[in-house]
Nucleic acid binder design. Sequence first.
DNA 1: CGCGTGGTTGACCGATATCAACACTTGTGG
DNA 2: CCACAAGTGTTGATATCGGTCAACCACGCG
Lengths: 256, 256
Amino acid sequence: MIQAISLPTDDKLLNVQTLKASCAACSMHQLCLPMGLADADIDRLDKIIGRRRRVARDEPLYRKGDPFRNLYAVRFGHFKTYQVNAAGETQITGFQMAGELLGMDAISSECHHCDAVALEDSEVCEIPFGNLEELFGQVPTLLRHFHRMMSNEITREQNAMLLLGNMRAEQRFAVFLVNKSARYAARGYSPTQFALRMSREDIGNYLGLTIESISRLLSRFKKMGLLTIDKREVTLLDPARLKALAAGTEQCSPMA
Amino acid sequence: MIQAISLPTDDKLLNVQTLKASCAACSMHQLCLPMGLADADIDRLDKIIGRRRRVARDEPLYRKGDPFRNLYAVRFGHFKTYQVNAAGETQITGFQMAGELLGMDAISSECHHCDAVALEDSEVCEIPFGNLEELFGQVPTLLRHFHRMMSNEITREQNAMLLLGNMRAEQRFAVFLVNKSARYAARGYSPTQFALRMSREDIGNYLGLTIESISRLLSRFKKMGLLTIDKREVTLLDPARLKALAAGTEQCSPMA
DNA sequence: CGCGTGGTTGACCGATATCAACACTTGTGG
DNA sequence: CCACAAGTGTTGATATCGGTCAACCACGCG
């Protein structure tokens, strides 16, 4: 019921939602769940994939407490996922882009543990998890790749812990930019020019910093000739130096 | 070869290592991988489980870069896992106790991404992952529970991100204590009296704080009547208040 | 046009890190 | 047995990074 609220209701969109996704035809199939599958197995996966679903900007894909039935693969657009604790503090735990999987944290308890919200108008494939489990028994390659994706998620979060626990503001932000750059590159986009899809506030929350700190970091990086920024459009001017900052092998003086 | 260095070499221990583990007889089987399996399926799991392996205090179970062949289930003792980045900064990403699984982050790349070190003399079951994958096809309940365990790990780390990104020192430490308490309770031990197996330094690193901060927090909590501490032996005197601190619904003044 | 939202910049503050001294325990070797 | 060193933990003084508060700007929208 909660999910229904988030669905656009005009005819065109409803129409799209009834389309079945096709992994074979999807530009993300080399990054997404079907990675490495033989054509015949992709067809079997296609058969169980549910409808596509559009999610408008700022609308939830799912909310904490929603029953878990599907994983979601991002077709296009961007999402953020965040935790909210008892005291109302929130922590953004990740930003997801095309080809990435949402909802794996919910498998353990059959309801979602975090909120997932679209950062822009986006589309996902619904993957009914029960059907996926059945298919695992028939397509070992699929199971193996699914385990890889879960394992990757664990590693990604361990790196986020390292960032939040050990790094200083400037290094955190450099890591963030380098990571975005690499992920766009993997999708065939420019590694040096891209739009931040999220607000300064979201970036700050994700990195354990305030919106003011992000704003100051952007100004400082700009002054240092590392990047240019126009609204949310970033151009990385010195990716090598940025990588050095991210790796911690170089630092810039606090107020230079 | 690296692993061999960590193996105690006296006869008694070598002898133990040749023993096959038995899940059916293991006191942890209700928490560990075999949770919820029928007896017949536990037997099938037993057949693939490798040797037991003892790991002495401060010795590694595996190191970053070691080839990934096995998951490990802790039989007794405690471990820590930590990430090291290019600049040599380390972040402890978790403390594992009996019944918990180690190595799931390595599935994606076939080599380990972090170091796992014993906090005290400990024993693990080796679970050859290749054999486990074969068994998944035959025992769907096992696969389902394995997915739950991976998903739990993801959720656990998301909570750690919330802690590191949003909470103040006193709340972080309260969360740490309450979490330890709950995990000992789940294993049939006292939720109010237990030994910290790790140094102040390890606690600090895990919580993104310094050793001095941990020391001061312990003194403060002691002064507030929340606990007593003798070396590493903790007694929680006011678990309810501690839980309130952990939830963020109560605070204590910085220097009261 | 005014208003709201998002972003930038400056001044100041405070929680926690850093630095330093000291206490206690453990292990080692004479 | 003691002397000594190394490791671990505690406590105090001070420094600093990033948070907080506040003013202001730019843009989009009704």
